[in-house]
Simulated scan of single mutants.
Amino acid sequence: MTTTAVPAALAWRADPYTAALRSGRGPLFLHRRDGWLLPLEVERWCAAPDPADLTVLRRCRGAVLDIGCGPGRLVVALAALGTAALGVDVSPEAVRRTQRSGGSALCRSVFDPLPGEGRWHTALLLDGNIGIGGDPAALLERAAQLVGSDGQLLVEAAPFDVDEHVEVRVADGRGAFGTGFPWSRLGTAALLKYAHATGWRAAERWTAAGRPFVALRRR
């Protein structure tokens, strides 16, 4: 596990994130040191895939690894379609919820040893998960180790031009905070910059319900 993965793992194991997943409801935020709050869409994550998610699922091929799967809506949907899919998440509650819903998931960091390294056909980084670890280049390099040479990485970018690397905490907006950890937010332009620098190329770009996505392939 990388050093940046350690504080993140501790943060996502603590309340108020765990409490929000148990109830399936927010409010929940990423809280920056200057007081800025980014709302987290707990209700959407705990629901069935929405139309924007379906555009991603239609592009999945072969065995799928969902990095930062959360409560597992995509893993469960893929399993229902007969697709081999595995979620990984540092939150034990997220993994339990995925498993209870019929999906397969492991409680691990993406930077831990994982099954099938180098053989996954599709990997997912959705719902802001390009921010995991606060180092997009390291995350993209790790994703390249996980997928096969002909594999793909489907990534969701922020819906505006941003390239931000900060420390945040999970907060419930009512005074409860988790442990601080590094996080990044990337718009499409910044995502493509980091992708190019780490040996990926953009194979496709699309937007659904205001959410921008990029399909990356190895160069």
Rank of each mutant, 00 (worst) to 15 (best):
A123C: 01
D127F: 14
L139G: 06
A138G: 09
H121R: 15
I132Q: 00
H121Y: 07
G133P: 05
D112K: 04
D127V: 14
W120S: 01
G118R: 07
G128T: 13
I132V: 10
H121C: 13
L125R: 11
A137D: 13
P136L: 02
G131P: 02
E117V: 02
G116Q: 08
C107P: 12
G133D: 00
V110E: 00
D127R: 15
A137W: 03
P136K: 00
L124M: 13
P113N: 04
H121P: 03
G133F: 03
L114Q: 10
V110S: 07
D127W: 10
D112Q: 04
N129D: 06
I130H: 00
L124S: 15
E117G: 01
P113Y: 01
W120L: 09
D127C: 12
I130T: 03
R108S: 15
P113H: 08
P136T: 04
A123F: 04
F111D: 02
A138S: 15
L124A: 14
R108W: 00
V110F: 09
P113F: 00
D112T: 03
T122S: 09
G134D: 01
G134N: 04
G131L: 02
I130Y: 03
W120R: 12
F111K: 03
G131T: 05
A138W: 00
G131Q: 00
N129S: 08
L114W: 10
N129W: 07
T122W: 00
L139A: 05
P136Q: 01
A138L: 14
A138R: 13
G131K: 05
G116E: 11
P113M: 03
G133W: 01
L126P: 12
G116S: 13
R108Q: 15
A138D: 12
A138Q: 14
G118H: 09
G131Y: 05
A138M: 05
P136W: 03
G134P: 06
C107V: 13
V110T: 10
W120P: 06
R119P: 00
D112M: 01
R119F: 07
L126K: 11
R108H: 12
R119H: 13
G128M: 10
G118P: 09
A123L: 10
A137L: 00
I130E: 05
S109Y: 02
L114K: 11
G133R: 02
L139M: 08
V110W: 06
